[in-house]
């Protein structure tokens, strides 16, 4: 009882541990808040910095791709799909498990891991 009381009083005097991303309190209207943030009226608290080698959203470079289809074979979530008609590898972000295996197998470096992890959006693609 005494140990926890001591720790709690110590914490009372310190700043909260919570990461205040993107704002301290929920705004009244989230859409308005995002619009204001875009115009620079309000400042967003930055998210936590991710370490190097973070596995985030995958970037696909169509020009480098040789269509070997290795990535579609190793992808555990079937997030990469070869579309015959357009001769293109299609990346389904909402299925992706961010394992980074496709990046490992890609012989030309057409696929790359980025640090982007804020992936919520209004549309599915």
């Amino acid at each position: 009882m005494i140990v926890i009381a001591k720790e709690l009083v110590k914490q009372l005097l310190k700043k909260p541990f919570t990461n205040l991303f993107p704002a301290k309190y929920a705004p009244k209207s989230i859409k308005q808040f995002l619009r204001d943030a875009k115009e620079g009226k309000v400042k967003l608290n930055p998210p936590v910095v991710v370490p190097p080698n973070f596995r985030g959203k995958i970037e696909y470079d169509e020009k480098k791709c040789i269509r070997c289809k290795l990535c579609t074979r190793v992808c555990p979530a079937k997030a990469l799909e070869y579309v015959e008609k357009e001769n293109i590898i299609k990346y389904h972000l909402f299925r992706c498990a961010f394992c980074g295996q496709c990046v490992d197998v890609c012989p030309t470096g057409a696929l790359k891991l980025t640090k982007e992890f804020l992936l919520a959006g209004y549309k599915k693609d």
Binding site: Q11, L12, K24
Partner: peptide, 13 residues
């Protein structure tokens, strides 16, 4: 608010 701050949280307004 105080309870939250003691628990290292931000707490509600």
């Amino acid at each position: 608010k105080l309870a939250a701050r003691m628990q290292s949280r931000v707490g509600p307004p």
